[in-house]
Design a protein around this nucleic acid. Structure first.
Lengths: 228, 228
DNA sequence: CGGTTTCTTGAGCGCCGTCAAGTAAGGTGG
DNA sequence: CCACCTTACTTGACGGCGCTCAAGAAACCG
C-alpha cells in the first residue's frame, strides 16, 4: 500500500501570467504551490473536500472511480497542461492518482472562485473549463456505451496522438491496466486489440509504451467516428 | 421522418424570479420563450449553434449522440425542472429530442452570459450548472464502463425514482429502446432484466411504463453501488 | 375491430471476460 | 555485467453475458 499523504515536495511559487493562458484564466494573479507525486501516489480521494484545483506540469495523472468490489473506471487521463480537480463542487467525486512520477501546481479553489466574483473574465474562464470537461465526458459516453473493443482502442490512440502533440509517434504514459479501466475493457482484451492492430499494419509497437500510427486513416476508420 | 422544425408553438413570457430558483440563477431577470414539442420531435441537432438554453416545464427530453451506422447513445434524460443545452460552448455536441410531448422555456445563451458578466451571482449559477452536469456525466461513466446489465437497470430505476419525486411508484416517460440506448444495452436485454427483477420480487410492473419498487434495499444492492 | 407499435420471450451465437501460462522488460544486488 | 526477481505484457483455451434474429403477446389507436 502507498502512503496516504500525497505530497512529497511542496514549494510555493508565483504563477506567471502567461503560464495561465491555457487555463483561460489569464487575468488571474494566482499563487500556485508545486506538488510532486510518485508513481501511483494519490493526490486526493473521492469524498475529500474539493479544496484545490491542479494543473499538471509534468507526468500524467488519472482521475478514477472505484467500486466496492474493486472494479475501476478511469474517467480521465490528465496530461501536462491539463487541469483537474473540478469534479464535484463540494467534495471530489473521483480520486486522482499519479500514473508515473508527476509534478503539478496547486491552486486554492476558494481563491479562484473569489477571483471569479471580482473579475468576469476569470469567471468566464472557470465556466469554460467546466464546459470543456463536460464535453470530454460526454464524448466518453458514446465510447463506453456503444463502441466495440477495437473501436474504443482506436479512438483512444487517436485522442492520445492528438493530445501529445499530434505526432504519428508517441509514448503512452499509462499501463495496459489503466487503458483497460479507461475503456471499460480488460487488460487482456486491450493487449489483444493492440496485437491485432499491429498485425493489420495499423500501428507499430517498438516497445509496449511506444506507439506509431502507420495508417492513420485506417485507425480513424476503425474508431467508428464519422469524421475527425 | 419528423419535420426538422422543432417548434410547434412559441410564446414569449416574462420569467418570474422564483421560477428561476432551481437554476441557481435567481438573480437574473430573464425573458423566456415557451417551446412546445411533440413526441420524438427534435429541439436541436448535434452541430447546431448552441444559441439557447432550455428548461423543461413538462414532459421529458433526451439528449443523445448518433453514430453514422445508427448506434445511439442517450446521454441524459431531462425531466421537468431540468436544464439542457449546455453541451458544447459553440455548437451542440448532442442532439435533443422530446421523449413524449413536452413544454420548455427557451433562453438566449448570449443573454445569460451577458448577465453573468454583470452579475457574479449569475456567473456562479452558470458555473454551478456546468459542474452539476459534469458530475452527472461522470457518474454515468462508471455505469457504462463497468456495470452489468442488471446493475445498470437497477441504478437507472433508483435514479428515476429519486428524480421523479422519491416515491416508490413512478412512471417511466421513455421507451425500452431509449432506456437501452441510455444504458448501453439492447432493448431485449432491458426487457429481460425488467422481467428478471419482477420475478425476483424487486419490482412490480402494473404496466410497461409504471414501476413500483417492492424491495428498495434489494434494488440498491443490485445496483452495485457502495451506498446511496 | 383490424392494424400498428411496443414489449416480451426464446434460441443460438459471438464478443469479450476469465483463467492460465508463457514471454519480455525492468530493477536490484552480487 | 550478469543472475535473479519482480512486474508488465502477451497469447491461448474456454465459457458466459449480452447481442442477434425471430416470433409471439400486449397495448395503443384510429
Amino acid at each position: 500500500m502507498l502512503p496516504r499523504d500525497a505530497t512529497i515536495g511542496v514549494r510555493t511559487a508565483g504563477m506567471p501570467l502567461p503560464a495561465m493562458a491555457g487555463m483561460g484564466l489569464a487575468g488571474m494573479a494566482l499563487v500556485g504551490t508545486t506538488v510532486t507525486l510518485r508513481r501511483d501516489q494519490s493526490l486526493f480521494l473521492a469524498g475529500d473536500a474539493a479544496s484545490h484545483v491542479y494543473r499538471v506540469m509534468a507526468g500524467c495523472v488519472r482521475s478514477l472511480a472505484l467500486m466496492p468490489d474493486g472494479r475501476r473506471q478511469v474517467a480521465e487521463f490528465h496530461l501536462p497542461g491539463d487541469l483537474l480537480g473540478l469534479d464535484g463542487r463540494e467534495a471530489h467525486l473521483l480520486s486522482a492518482e499519479a500514473v508515473g512520477d508527476a509534478i503539478l501546481l496547486r491552486f486554492p479553489r476558494r481563491q479562484l472562485e473569489a477571483e471569479a466574483v471580482r473579475d468576469p473574465a476569470a469567471a468566464r474562464g472557470l465556466y469554460d473549463l467546466a464546459c470543456r470537461s463536460l464535453e470530454t465526458a460526454q464524448r466518453r459516453l458514446m465510447v463506453l456505451g456503444r463502441k466495440t473493443a477495437a473501436e474504443r482502442l482506436a479512438s483512444f490512440l487517436l485522442e492520445m496522438a492528438e493530445r501529445t502533440g499530434g505526432d504519428r509517434r508517441f509514448d503512452l504514459p499509462m499501463s495496459r491496466q489503466d487503458i483497460a479501466d479507461h475503456l471499460g475493457l480488460t487488460i487482456e482484451t486491450v493487449s489483444r486489440v493492440f496485437s491485432q492492430f499491429r498485425r493489420k499494419g495499423l500501428i507499430a509497437l517498438p516497445t509496449a509504451q511506444r506507439v506509431e500510427l502507420r495508417d492513420h486513416d485506417a485507425v480513424e476508420a476503425a474508431s467508428g467516428d464519422c469524421a475527425a
